[in-house]
Amino acid sequence: MTYKLILNGKTLKGETTTEAVDAATAEKVFKQYANDNGVDGEWTYDDATKTFTVTE
């Protein structure tokens, strides 16, 4: 399945996607991606759209 991440960081905004077997796996990938890019904030997940959002 394809999962999407929306980044609403103070210095980085954008979107990315990943292929993962489940939401938990996608979340690990996205949290590492956000961490690597210096984005740390509040996370939400919408199962209907398979979209994670992180907002600083």
Rank of each mutant, 00 (worst) to 15 (best):
V39E: 03
Y3M: 02
V54S: 02
A20S: 06
N37Y: 15
E19Y: 15
D46P: 00
D36P: 01
T51F: 02
T25S: 14
F30G: 00
A24S: 12
A24N: 08
E15K: 07
V39N: 03
A24L: 12
V21Q: 12
I6D: 02
T53Y: 11
Y33I: 07
Y33Q: 03
M1L: 13
V39M: 07
E42M: 12
D47T: 09
T11V: 12
G9T: 15
N8M: 11
D40M: 14
I6K: 05
N35Y: 15
I6W: 04
Y45P: 00
T2G: 05
D22L: 04
F30T: 00
Q32S: 08
E19D: 09
T2R: 14
T55N: 09
Q32R: 11
F52N: 00
N8W: 11
V21D: 11
A24D: 11
L7V: 14
T16D: 03
Y33T: 03
E15W: 15
T17V: 10
Y33P: 00
Y3S: 01
G14V: 15
N8A: 08
A23S: 12
F30R: 00
N37Q: 15
G38F: 07
E15S: 14
E19Q: 14
M1R: 10
W43L: 03
V29R: 10
D22W: 03
E19N: 12
G38E: 06
T25D: 09
E19H: 12
V39F: 14
K13Q: 11
A26P: 00
T11M: 11
W43S: 00
Y3K: 01
A48T: 15
L12T: 10
A20N: 03
A23N: 06
E15C: 13
E15Q: 11
F30Q: 00
T18E: 03
T25A: 13
D36S: 11
N8C: 10
L5W: 02
T16N: 06
T51Q: 04
V21Y: 12
T25N: 08
G38H: 08
A26H: 00
A23K: 15
V29C: 07
D47E: 15
T53L: 06
D46Y: 04
E15F: 14
V39A: 04
Q32H: 08
I6S: 04
V29P: 01
A23R: 12
A20Q: 07
I6P: 00
T51S: 05
T17K: 08
A24Y: 10
K28Y: 10
D47L: 08
D22E: 04
D36C: 08
V29F: 15
G9Y: 06
T11F: 14
A26N: 00
D36T: 08
L5F: 05
T51Y: 03
L7W: 11
K13S: 10
Y33L: 05
D46S: 06
F52V: 01
A23L: 10
D47M: 09
Y3I: 02
D46I: 05
T18I: 15
N8T: 07
K31I: 08
T2W: 13
L12C: 13
F52C: 02
N35L: 14
L12E: 06
W43R: 00
A24H: 09
N35D: 08
L5I: 04
D40K: 14
D46G: 02
K50V: 03
T18F: 11
D22C: 05
G41L: 03
A26R: 00
D22V: 03
D46V: 05
D22M: 03
T17P: 02
T44W: 09
V54I: 10
G38P: 01
K50T: 04
K13F: 09
A34T: 05
K31R: 15
Q32K: 15
E19F: 15
F52L: 01
T25W: 09
E27G: 06
D46E: 07
T2V: 13
T17G: 04
T17D: 05
N35M: 15
I6E: 04
L7R: 02
Q32E: 10
Y3F: 14
T44Q: 11
G14W: 15
D47K: 10
N37H: 15
Y45T: 01
Q32V: 09
G38S: 07
D46W: 04
E19M: 14
E42R: 09
A23I: 11
A23M: 13
T55D: 07
V21R: 09
T44C: 08
K50S: 06
K10C: 12
T2P: 06
K4A: 04
F52M: 02
Y33N: 02
G14T: 14
K4T: 15
E27N: 05
M1F: 14
E42W: 13
V39S: 03
K31W: 08
W43E: 00
G38T: 03
V54L: 09
Y45D: 00
T2S: 09
T2N: 07
D47A: 14
D47N: 09
G38Q: 08
Y33K: 03
T44S: 13
